[in-house]
Nucleic acid binder design. Structure first.
Ligand SMILES: [Mn+2]
Ligand SMILES: [Mn+2]
Ligand SMILES: [Zn+2]
Ligand SMILES: [Zn+2]
Lengths: 141, 141
DNA sequence: AAAGCAAATGAAAACGATTATCAATTTCAA
DNA sequence: TTGAAATTGATAATCGTTTTCATTTGCTTT
């Protein structure tokens, strides 16, 4: 990771190192605010802009992608594994991943038919997760 | 359409009639601003809030859905035909639709496996459209 | 080791789309 | 025709994102 930064000509600062490492060890899809809070626990002098800028950098380096589920909050999705879809719970905002291997072929074909050059996919299923669904049923009876 | 509004207890105003009819005759996915501009050509006294509120109402009535491709602008997608995907050109912001009939079965299955209650799908291919692609190739040579 | 320069930081302000507020107007049922 | 409730239009508030700028820092070159 230090290598990656040096190679591309970016400087290695303590803030950057901390932000990168904490982001990369997150399991879920964090927002700037969420990561900022995590970071502040370890170094309360780091500014919001710095966290924001480094998340952008992380994306530029191809280590993460922005995802936008329509609730106005940008989340950051680590690209550890290949392309995948998201189940997004509109109630608790939880994001669960699923494999899209079975449909990328279809999507490639669609793009090819329209002579469209693919940059990325966004496959989402919006609705209610297991937990929220159970809660809903209890309340509505 | 008058029926639909009356049935649900909404009042019929000249502004509302105009906004609904102009929106419904749009072919592409308009933003509030875009529809506002169209409307103003016909009645320059209509306020932005009114256009915005009526677009929300149109969605509430199930005639359209909000779509959010990540560029910070909410667009409104008529639900004339069933669920469909979008090819989104990151350069010219054009949205082209495509059928997703062949993959809804798969997505239903994914949701079922996770005990997830589907509200809607969002299937997007981001990249460069035919036109912008051609332009790009010209410039880069 | 010191200097010089470009990059990075942090605080604050700017931005921009969306949403809320409120007085005035209008619809519609009684 | 009358009155309650909804709608409108102007304006302000909101809120996440992005920019600005003075200061500090990392890193390369002497
Ligand atoms: Mn993910
Ligand atoms: Mn569409
Ligand atoms: Zn949930
Ligand atoms: Zn294009």
């Amino acid at each position: 990771m230090r290598e990656l930064l040096k190679n591309k000509g970016f400087k290695l600062t303590p803030q950057r190192e901390l932000i990168f490492s904490i982001f990369l060890e997150q399991r879920d899809h964090v927002s700037v605010d969420e990561l900022y809070d995590e970071i502040r626990k370890l170094d309360s002098s780091i500014g919001y802009s710095t966290v924001w800028r480094n998340l952008k950098l992380i994306c530029k380096l191809g280590l993460a992608r922005e995802i936008n589920v329509g609730d106005g909050i940008t989340r950051y999705d680590q690209v550890t594994h290949g392309p995948h879809g998201h189940l997004f719970c509109v109630k608790c905002k939880k994001l669960v991943e699923f494999s899209v291997d079975k449909i990328v072929g279809f999507l490639d074909q669609v793009a090819e038919d329209k002579n469209f050059q693919i940059e990325s996919f966004k496959i989402e299923i919006q609705g209610l997760c297991d937990d929220c669904r159970a809660l809903n049923e209890k309340t509505s009876v």
